[in-house]
Write a protein that binds this DNA or RNA. Structure first.
Lengths: 212, 212, 212, 212
DNA sequence: TATGAATGAGTCTTCATTCAT
DNA sequence: AATGAATGAAGACTCATTCAT
């Protein structure tokens, strides 16, 4: 292994280390209320050092977002392997998103924050591009699965494929996000709130509206 | 009309004027990126003057939120008057929310911003309380309408009322919010994106999953 | 009575009224932490109205100071009437100052605040002049009383009259002020502190150092 | 010397430098009328830089107060070493306070400002606590010295120890403060005023009232 | 005489980023 | 590669005073 690679590895390791520290703080306090000062202190590094590895606070944050997107993508691709019929695969896709939310609440929060602001971001940022491509890819998968579902008789034929795929996409993300929002709110209010099982119920609900 | 009322009217008019100016800037730049300085400048007023009418930046913003909530409430209550069966009324309720989003995109954005942060807000703030109560009220209406729908035979009987009402609530808000997010994103990318009609499609979709 | 006088009386009454309101607030919150806004509100007047009667916040405050000085002067002049010998009169003068502090803690606080800042005040202010003259007058009385005391044999002869009179003056004001300061401090700390009787003890102490 | 110590020294030096600048301005203009802006400008630093060394304006000011208290404490402890009898030591203690006032008029002004406001300060502040403890310590010394004086026959026996110690304490601080106040006032008025020697006279006066 | 809305300079404090070492 | 001191623009908010009505 060349010296160059050796150094590159060290750099990547350091980046991972910083990201690990930052992940916790960003998750706990949110983007705006996290200062580079605190990250540096927690990481026992000089503030300037962080800037050797990340060009800005945004860059550091979006690297975490990107990592989150990768995890999500992997989970989705993995989940749609199982299930035979198109409908099963679609439901598994929804389950994958819910699973991501449950298992990686920190990464989930970054992805959502990113999603809600990326419309205002600089179009030249490669991270926006990447995320956009990932979204498209997932969306295309969804479309194919609906087609397959109609073909194998697991999904009704009277639906518009384009609209349905888009709607399912919007709906799933939306339901999970709203659940997260309400959950925090109701917790504060010490009130009863349907447990996380409502998300499973959502999958049932989806099934009912799609199946033949 | 007494002199006192005359002055009060003038004060209310000025508040409205400031809110009008602030509404545009908040809408364009978001809460954090809007400074009182800019609002004052746009309103051709001294900074201090604004503080005569609103005790803080938060107060000014939440006044807009509250106004938005009032509009939304009115639209929902108005819309569910029409329709005979429970299912019709539920669909009209969803339509009201979409209509609010379409007709008052600015107010909509404040309400959403508020909703996504109210979990972190001070519970003692009367505005949080008010909004909370409004939400509960709307949610209760939804529950009653489902009951009515089951009763009058317009809605299937095999659903859990509590879960369904909560899910419809999360889902509708979620779909609209995700639509808004994606729309802005795709617009930037000059791509084709299912027009706003997808929201109408959502209502159809909802109908299918509820009706007997 | 001429119309002019009638109006003047009304003006004086209004000034008194405003001063009464302001006295309480200044006493409770201190000069810096009292705003004209609050005074106006408490007095159920418009802010501008106060400026018809007092040219500034300072003017209003110093009018209270001046009133305090008048009360103090009257008490001193009254007290030194009683007592036969020079020493008795001097002690009564000290007692008058302590009595002023005890009976008019609010006016006392204004006088002290004024005294500690008048060195930095504009020399052209007539109020500084007045106070200065009052101080001189009192100081002269003190000097005469010492002379009389030496003459009638109630006070030792081995003291320097100028220095002693000045010292008694500084000392009495100083002791009372420090007592007030410490008292508040110790109260906060819930500790035992020699009661106000220490001020009477001070008079005894003074007597011992002066008498033949 | 390690690198670490080297940096720490530099930081301390910078703190001292800022305090030196601030000391002058605070002394000249008082706490309220001194702005961080001006301190930064005088120190030829960016405003933010000062906040690297002091967490707030209060912190900066109280650091000066604390330094003053340390100097005063040292002077008192040093002065009471000399003198044989209890009375001599007490007089030297008074002289120490006067010396502090004469040699460090700036620090003296901070200490007095602090003393006059500490009753209103937050009891949780460690600086208030420290100062309180210092005061108590000095006061205890005074009490012991009076006891010693009575014991060794240099002080009269007919005095109440508690009251006397408290009174001497109040009196000394009071006299010096009043002297400072009057001095500034009379200076402005270009009048003759007993020179600083009146403070020495105060010590004589004290001696006379205490000795057997 | 009375009003009270309007002013705007001034306050302390924060923090992402840079750069000399 | 690493440091961390320095920057300085920007933020929300206050308040004595004025002046048109």
């Amino acid at each position: 292994m060349s010296r160059h690679n050796y150094n590159e590895e060290k750099i990547i390791a350091k980046k991972k280390y910083i990201m690990e520290i930052a992940k916790e703080i960003f998750f706990k306090k949110g983007y705006e209320n996290t200062s580079m000062n605190e990250i540096a202190k927690q990481a026992k590094m000089a503030k300037g050092t962080i800037y050797l590895y990340f060009s800005s606070k945004k860059d550091l944050f979006f690297s975490l977002v990107y990592e989150g997107l990768e995890i999500l993508e992997k989970m989705i691709k993995n989940n749609i392997k199982s299930g035979e019929k198109g409908l099963d695969k679609i439901l598994n896709m929804g389950r994958a998103y819910i699973q991501f939310y449950r298992e990686y609440p920190d990464y989930y929060s970054f992805v959502i924050k990113y999603e809600s602001e990326k419309a205002d971001l600089d179009t030249n940022e490669p991270l926006v591009l990447n995320s956009y491509e990932k979204s498209e890819e997932i969306y295309d998968i969804l479309k194919l699965l609906i087609l397959k579902g109609i073909d194998d008789g697991s999904i009704r034929e009277d639906i518009d494929i384009n609209k349905t795929s888009m709607l399912l996409w919007l709906q799933t993300i939306g339901v999970v996000q709203q659940y997260e929002l309400r959950k925090k709110l109701y917790e504060n209010w010490d009130e009863k709130f349907p447990s996380s099982s409502i998300l499973d119920f959502y999958i049932d609900f989806m099934e009912k509206s799609l199946k033949k």
